[in-house]
């Protein structure tokens, strides 16, 4: 199989959520001497980009996104050793969490998946994360972005505190927020850099913002 054929099959296998096929194709590609970065950027990531596009236009539902992301992870596992030697293969590091007082993780996990699919290294702080933990993690892990989620109107106000703490700590990266009650107006009001209406948009807009920075 030529490199182009492997890339195309990888893309299709990611879209179809075929994790065993993805792993086998990555193994085959490595064996054929194809660079891990190429398998990632020409096969796996285009596959997840297409998944994101289909999710945005409501052709795909969440389980389909999740099985696609899992398939991509299966490929990343095969390529891990090689990719870790080439940090340039990743587009950036993002710290993500659900804000203090909020125990919901569905949206946050979905966004984390899409970030991973878009090539980010994700540091997931989980749920009910206080402002200082966002700040500490961003600093300690050298993150280029912080992403926050909230499901409740009663907890989304805590995002403002995190933004203020990050600014106070002179965090220079991008701050992106989202969640059911969150709006663009709210994001602007609290001084976040980006707002995303859904997981796919979050990954797209953060990647675009990082590329432009």
């Amino acid at each position: 199989m030529s490199a182009e054929e492997i890339f195309e099959k990888l893309k299709k296998s990611v879209i179809g959520g075929k994790r065993k096929d993805v792993a086998a194709l990555c193994t085959e590609g490595k064996g054929a001497g194809i660079a891990g970065k190429d398998l990632l950027t020409k096969g796996l990531l285009p596959g997840m980009e297409e998944v994101g596009r289909r999710f945005r236009c409501e052709e795909f539902y969440i389980p389909e996104v999740l099985v696609a992301a899992r398939a991509m992870h299966a490929g990343l596992e095969i390529l891990r050793d090689e990719l870790e030697k080439q940090p340039a293969a990743q587009v950036g590091k993002v710290v993500i969490g659900t804000v203090e007082g909020d125990l919901h993780d569905i949206g946050k996990n979905l966004v984390a998946m899409m970030f991973t699919g878009a090539g980010f290294e994700v540091v997931d702080l989980g749920i009910d994360v206080p402002a200082n933990r966002f700040v500490e993690a961003a600093k300690e892990r050298g993150a280029q972005a912080v992403a926050m989620s909230a499901l409740l109107t009663t907890t989304m106000v805590n995002m403002e505190k995190v933004v203020a703490e990050l600014r106070k700590a002179q965090f220079k990266g991008k701050i992106i927020i989202g969640g059911a009650p969150v709006t663009k107006e709210f994001a602007d009001k609290i001084g976040a850099d980006l707002y995303a209406a859904d997981a796919s948009e979050g990954a797209e807009s953060l990647r675009a913002a990082m590329a432009a920075a």
Binding site: G17, I62, P63, E64, L66, V67, A69, R70, H104, D105, I106, K108, N109, L110, M113
Partner: peptide
């Protein structure tokens, strides 16, 4: 129903 975030991927995988 919609599984919680921790179980969501496993649940989705099992459906397939």
């Amino acid at each position: 129903g919609i599984p919680d975030g921790e179980r969501m991927t496993e649940f989705s995988m099992r459906l397939y």
